[in-house]
Write a protein that binds this DNA or RNA. Structure first.
Length: 294
DNA sequence: AAGCGAACCTGGCTGC
DNA sequence: TGCAGCCAGGTTCGCT
């Protein structure tokens, strides 16, 4: 699924189409995705205008004139397509590519500007929900979400504070959305590689005994920010499912240094190591055993 | 309490 | 060609 850079890419694609537009009609084609749609979902959306489209971690948030906010999560395979209404060429191409009459198209927003926004999600791990717009941060989806890694708060001191005394491996700590939010399996692997840190090192090792950040904590914070910014600039990573809202693929997958590169030589100049894959907490970890030694 | 495996669901790729 | 098996960008639940 989309991690933060893919969600941000989707947000940037949807924003010009949706903000300022009114939802004229909402097609909800099934009762549930990962979770049931909220009661009267389409009815509560219809007639509202989208005033802003924000992202928090891996969540998209559409602010509405109805006073509610539409929260959307893409799960593993969620994607949005923006197309012209009627028999738009992009829509035709999309349907052609996907070999069918909107297989897995679960929600279609018909906008007042003539645009169609279609949500497609083969595995249905994504979801949509409506929450009060004035208490967004307190809603059940966002209340426990951790630091926004591209915001002003992520630095070495924050990493040390969040990870202090934790014996859980760095890989697991970085995947924990309650600490730093928005990273997933790819960007955790990439950030640890860039920072030269072992995925198995205890998270607490990034804090000194007195809680101050170690040099590694500063490196990790900087590399998380760097890899996410580079990936956003590249339109995210397209492995199987992620697409930009015009159907184009992202490009960052070509710049992975370790993810899905098991058996390849370590890209660090002078390193003789080979990228290895092993399983941590049920997820593939890719790393260089030579230059990510604790 | 932490950490692991399984579960949710579908599709794509590999290998026999 | 067919089919079984494995893997996948996320998250949550339940059992040690």
């Amino acid at each position: 699924m989309p991690e933060l850079p893919e969600v941000e890419t989707v947000r940037r694609g949807l924003e010009p189409a949706m903000v300022g537009a009114r939802l004229m009609r909402v097609e909800q084609r099934r009762a549930a995705l990962r979770f049931p749609f909220p009661d009267r979902f389409a009815e509560r959306l219809t007639g509202a205008e989208v005033t802003a489209l924000a992202r928090r971690a891996k969540y998209l948030v559409a602010h509405l004139t109805s006073g509610e906010a539409l929260i959307m999560h893409l799960g593993m395979t969620g994607r949005f397509l923006v197309s012209a209404g009627g028999r738009g060429e992009v829509l035709g191409q999309y349907h052609h590519e996907h070999g069918g009459e909107g297989a897995h198209d679960h929600v279609v927003f018909h906008l007042s500007n003539g645009t169609l926004v279609t949500y497609n999600d083969a595995r249905r791990f994504g979801f949509m929900d409506l929450v009060p717009g004035d208490a967004l941060d307190a809603c059940r989806h966002l209340s426990g979400v951790g630091l926004e890694p591209l915001g002003p708060d992520l630095d070495g001191a924050a990493v040390a504070r969040l990870f202090r005394a934790k014996r859980t491996p760095l890989k697991a700590a970085l995947l924990d959305q309650r600490l730093v939010a928005g990273l997933g399996n790819i960007y955790v692997c990439e950030a640890l590689f860039r920072a030269g840190l072992s995925p198995e090192a205890p998270a607490g090792s990034l804090a000194e005994a007195d809680g101050r950040p170690t040099p590694a904590a500063h490196r990790l914070a900087a590399e998380i920010r760097a890899v996410l910014e580079e990936a956003v600039a590249a339109g995210g990573s397209t492995l199987r499912d992620h697409r930009q809202t015009d159907g184009a693929a992202g490009a960052f997958q070509h710049r992975f240094r370790v993810y899905d590169r098991a058996g390849e030589p370590c890209p660090n100049p002078g390193c003789e190591g080979t990228i290895a894959r092993f399983v941590q907490a049920g997820r593939s970890t890719f790393h260089c055993p030579v230059c990510q030694e604790a």
